[in-house]
């Protein structure tokens, strides 16, 4: 099983648009996992038909049994998160699930309840492949756990269908979710842009990827915005042994395909379409 993970560190570099293009090019030969669960957007261009839905539980929240509660106020005094109102209502967005209140309640009126904070879906997309995606509720913490779950489902589907490539739209940032995205991967593809913050975040996220001793490749988007900086990024890639896949030029109408519910590679005869096709070809050669 080969797992290709696309990440970016910074938002807005074109990561999801490029991943969706790879999904189109891979078609029925791959399984796609959307692990950018905070801003899950792959479904907007993949038009998935949901086959299976599963609730996602994570963490705990305190719940007061009114019949047992004597309103002594011990819970309010102990809670460090101001999660219990003077009327003894629990604010589920403030409750961190530490269970201190439940532990000290003299009448055992407080129980800890598992919290359903979202759902994940197994779908078949218009590109003839399976897409595993998720929707998180408000205030839900995107930990590596949901990412791990989405990837696990993707692996199961791949095995059941005799497919050996999984394409992952990875999580942003450098925290727990991105670590979880990278776990078990064979190749990481970093999409960056030619801007100071893009380069800054590329370096930070690559420091994380390095720990996994993964093969890495990179696409520089909007390379012509700052040619001097693009050169610096290219030098950095060479120094770190990151395979440089392509430079995509700035395009004012980059989002036109997205508006039509399409991917960039479905707009034929554009520079971007060709460069992304070439990149996917190279990626396939690298992982084989």
């Amino acid at each position: 099983m080969k797992e290709i993970v696309v990440i970016s560190g910074k938002g807005g570099t074109g990561k999801t648009s490029i991943t969706a293009s790879f999904a189109k090019l891979g078609a029925e030969e791959i399984v796609v996992a959307d692990c950018d669960v905070d801003a899950a957007d792959m479904h907007l261009v993949m038009s998935p038909e949901v086959i299976h839905t599963e609730d996602y539980y994570s963490g705990f929240v305190a719940k007061i049994d009114e019949n047992k509660c004597t309103q002594c106020g011990a819970c309010i005094d102990t809670c460090q998160f101001d999660a219990i109102s003077p009327e003894f209502n629990i604010n589920q967005y403030k409750c961190e699930g530490c269970s201190y209140c439940s532990e000290i309640c003299p009448t055992h009126a407080i129980k800890m309840q598992e919290l359903c904070i979202g759902q994940y879906f197994i779908s078949k997309s218009r590109m003839n492949n399976y897409l595993i995606h998720a929707k998180l509720g408000i205030g839900a913490d995107n930990t590596g756990k949901l990412v791990a779950m989405v990837k696990k489902e993707a692996r199961k589907i791949a095995e059941a269908n005799n497919l050996n490539t999984i394409l992952v739209d990875g999580s942003p940032g450098i925290g727990c979710p991105v670590l979880s995205s990278l776990t078990g991967a064979n190749l990481v593809c970093i999409v960056t842009e030619s801007s100071l913050s893009g380069f800054h975040d590329l370096q930070r996220v690559y420091e994380v990827a390095k720990r996994f001793k993964l093969k890495a490749c990179c696409i520089i988007n909007k390379h012509d915005l700052n040619t001097k900086l693009t050169k610096q990024i290219e030098d950095y890639l060479e120094k770190e042994g990151i395979i440089h896949l392509a430079n995509l030029p700035y395009m004012a109408n980059f989002s036109d395909a997205m508006v039509e519910g399409k991917t960039i590679v479905e707009k034929e005869n554009t520079i971007h379409s060709q460069l992304i096709k070439d990149s996917w070809q190279k990626i396939k050669e690298i992982v084989v």
Partner: peptide, 30 residues
């Protein structure tokens, strides 16, 4: 960014919030 605990904390302590978006399907969804 996002809609998790860190941003909830900031919004909770603010008087007014400006949401920045871009006029694309991804922007709208988020």
């Amino acid at each position: 960014p996002g809609a998790a605990c860190p941003v909830m904390e900031v919004v909770d302590k603010s008087d007014f919030v400006i949401l920045v978006t871009e006029p694309t399907p991804f922007g709208l969804n988020d």
